[in-house]
C-alpha cells in the first residue's frame, strides 16, 4: 500500500490524518465533557445530549443571520456572541428539563435513558418544524477561512485550529470550575459520597440541577464549534451520540482526564484506521476494540476511587 510514496509523503499523510483526528478529537471532547460531568455526578446518561448540541448549532446559525442582516460590520466577531447565546439557550433548556423530568427519575437510571430518548425525539421534530428538514450551513467570517501551509505537503485549516483552541480553553475552564470553585468542590463531594455530602449540608438537589444545566450548556458550545466544520441538520446530533457515550464510558465516568484520554484514543485510532480501511470498517473496528477493552476494564481507563 505504500508503493509509490516517498518517505516524506508517508510522513505527511500521517500528519494530515493526525490533524483530521485532532479535529474529531475536539468535537468528541466538547460533546463528552458535558455528558461526563452529568454522568459522573448523577449517574444519568442524557440521550438527548446530541440534540442539545444541535440546539447550540441552530442558535449559532440564527446569530450569524442576525449579524449579517443588522450588523454586517461586526460580522467578524459574531462567533463569540453566538457561543454565548448557544450556551445560555442550551443551558436554560437543560435546567428546565432537569426540573421537569430528570429530578423525578434519579432512583431509576435506566428509565432516564428512555425518557431522555423521548426528549430527543421531541427536540428533533421541533428543529424540523422550526428550521426545516434541510441542512443549514453557517457562513464563516473571512479570517476563519483558508489554511496555513506548514510545509510543501502539509497544510492545516484555520477553522480546525480554531476549534482545537476553543476545546482547550473550554476544557481548562471546566477543570478550573471543578477543582477551584465552590461548585466544583461540592460536585466532587457528591460524586465521592452523595449521602455524606447531603449530611454535611450540601444542597445536592441544587448541585444536580446546576451540573445538568452546565453540561447542557457545554453541549451548546460544542454545537457552536460544530458549525465551523460541518453542516447542521435536525438529526446531525445522533451521528455522534454513540461515539460520545463510548468516550464517556471508556474514559471512566468520574474522571475528566479519562474522558480526554479516551476521546483522544478513539478519535486518533478512527482517523488513522480510516486511511487503511474504508470509513465504515474503520468505525466498526474502533467500536469493537473499545467494547473489547471495556470487557477487560469495565470501569474505564481512569478509575476514581470512590467509597460507596
Amino acid at each position: 500500500m505504500f508503493m509509490g510514496y516517498s518517505l516524506g509523503e508517508i510522513g505527511s499523510i500521517f500528519a494530515m490524518q493526525a490533524f483530521a483526528g485532532l479535529i474529531l478529537f475536539s468535537v468528541f471532547v466538547l460533546m463528552a465533557l458535558g455528558l461526563a460531568i452529568i454522568f459522573g455526578q448523577m449517574g444519568v446518561i442524557n440521550m438527548a445530549h446530541g440534540e442539545f448540541m444541535i440546539l447550540g448549532a441552530y442558535m449559532t446559525f440564527l446569530t450569524s443571520h442576525l449579524f449579517q442582516t443588522y450588523a454586517p460590520q461586526a460580522f467578524a466577531g459574531y462567533f463569540f456572541v453566538a457561543m454565548l447565546v448557544a450556551f445560555v439557550a442550551s443551558g436554560a433548556i437543560g435546567l428546565a428539563v432537569e426540573w421537569l423530568l430528570i429530578k423525578r427519575l434519579y432512583k431509576r437510571p435506566l428509565d432516564t435513558l428512555l425518557a431522555t430518548w423521548g426528549l430527543s425525539l421531541i427536540m428533533q421534530q421541533a428543529f424540523r418544524s422550526i428550521f426545516g428538514a434541510r441542512e443549514v450551513g453557517v457562513q464563516l467570517p473571512d479570517w476563519m477561512m483558508g489554511s496555513l501551509q506548514v510545509t510543501d505537503t502539509i497544510e492545516v485549516q484555520i477553522n480546525g485550529l480554531f476549534v482545537m483552541t476553543l476545546t482547550l480553553m473550554i476544557t481548562a475552564v471546566v477543570a478550573l470550575l471543578l477543582f477551584r470553585s465552590r461548585w466544583g468542590l461540592q460536585v466532587r463531594a457528591v460524586v465521592a459520597n452523595r449521602v455524606m455530602a447531603d449530611a454535611a449540608g450540601i444542597d445536592t438537589r441544587r448541585i444536580d440541577r446546576l451540573t445538568f444545566g452546565l453540561g447542557c450548556g457545554i453541549a451548546g458550545i460544542a454545537g457552536s464549534a460544530f458549525t465551523m466544520i460541518g453542516s447542521t441538520s435536525p438529526t446531525a446530533g445522533q451521528a455522534y451520540i454513540v461515539d460520545t457515550f463510548l468516550v464517556v464510558v471508556f474514559g471512566g465516568a468520574q474522571s475528566l482526564l479519562g474522558t480526554i484520554a479516551s476521546a483522544f484514543t478513539i478519535s486518533q485510532s478512527q482517523s488513522t484506521l480510516e486511511f487503511f480501511l474504508t470509513g465504515s470498517m474503520a468505525k466498526v473496528t474502533t467500536l469493537l476494540i473499545v467494547i473489547g477493552l471495556l470487557m477487560l476494564r469495565p470501569q474505564g481507563l481512569f478509575v476514581l476511587k470512590v467509597r460507596k
Binding site: L101, T112, L114, G118, S120, Q125
Partner: peptide, 11 residues
C-alpha cells in the same frame, strides 16, 4: 412528538 411524549409519559 407523540412518540417522544409517550416515552416520557410511560416512564
Amino acid at each position: 412528538f407523540f412518540m417522544g411524549g409517550l416515552f416520557i409519559a410511560v416512564v
